[in-house]
């Protein structure tokens, strides 16, 4: 099982390097390599996740190691969907580093499977976490697309039309994908918060306890609600939408790591 994990990590690392090379040199061979290596990595990763699932009997998100690993698994999954749908060759170069770092952080946490406390053993575990992680993964992709948008916007605005300008897609499609991803991520996050509240009620007897994780999730929700609101109401698109989607993902990361590590939370995996 450890070997599977290390192999996955290695494949994601190679994909990341290929992505960086592709960004600098722009050869189609590295672009293809990135897809191949990340696909193999994803396959191994899926087996790893399934192994842990069958061994513990519930979805493997109950320790930092498992959660970070599952988070990066969801990101790769969504990356493939976006890549398949829009064929933005360069996207991998922007999101693979994110995925690799998430996987790397997973690797530093203890890996043993601990028994889950009985209050948390519920079907809500699967529903709540899958919703939350898929939503977060959509936000991660929106962040990657947002970075691409800002780069391309900079090139067009400042009239610096180098090789990267030619390889990046049009501003319009980047903006469109960014919006699409947030409209996918937002309802998932909303549902995750609702299912979380229902689960909390059944486990601890209260829907909402102002737990740091809950508060930060609410902040994330408000930010993405704002992104959608200003776009629809005030026509905030393009650059501003891209910046907001990057900010939003930073808050997602704070919610994921910061709260678990720095603040005492019911969501902590202790």
């Amino acid at each position: 099982m450890t070997l599977l994990f290390e192999l996955t990590l290695t494949f994601y690392f190679i994909s990341t390097i290929l992505g960086i090379v592709e960004l600098i040199k722009g050869s189609s061979a590295t672009a293809r390599g990135l897809i191949i290596f990340s696909s193999i990595g994803f396959l191994l990763h899926t087996i790893h996740v399934l192994f842990r699932f069958f061994e513990s009997g519930y979805i493997p998100v109950t320790s930092m190691h498992e959660a970070a690993s599952f988070f990066s698994w969801s990101m790769v999954f969504l990356f493939f969907i976006v890549e398949y749908r829009y064929k933005i060759g360069l996207l991998g170069a922007f999101v693979m580093p994110l995925i690799f770092i998430m996987m790397l952080s997973s690797s530093i946490y203890p890996r043993e499977i601990k028994p889950l406390s009985p209050v948390l053993q519920s079907y809500w575990l699967g529903i709540h976490t899958i919703l939350a992680f898929t939503g977060d993964a959509a936000f991660a992709m929106a962040c990657g697309i947002g970075i691409m948008y800002l780069l391309q916007e900079y090139f067009v605005k400042k009239k610096k039309l180098g090789s990267l300008f030619h390889r990046l897609p049009s501003l319009q499609i980047l903006d469109e994908i960014n919006y699409r991803l947030i409209t996918i991520g937002f309802p998932l996050l909303t549902l995750a918060i609702i299912t979380g509240a229902l689960w909390a009620e059944s486990a601890w007897g209260s829907y909402w306890q102002w737990d740091p994780k809950e508060v930060w999730s609410l902040i994330t929700w408000l930010i993405y609600a704002l992104v959608l609101h200003v776009r629809l109401r005030a026509g905030w698109r393009g650059k501003r939408a891209a910046i907001l989607s990057i900010l939003g993902f930073i808050v997602v990361i704070i919610t994921f790591f910061g709260v678990n590590l720095l603040l005492n939370s019911l969501h902590g995996f202790v």
């Binding site: 067009v156 300008f165 501003l171 319009q172």
Partner: peptide, 18 residues
């Protein structure tokens, strides 16, 4: 890449609009 002004304009338009 475009090597005339008019093609350069078209090329740019295609990077702004899909």
């Amino acid at each position: 890449n475009a090597v005339s002004i008019s093609y350069a304009a078209v090329e740019l338009a295609k990077k702004i609009f899909q």
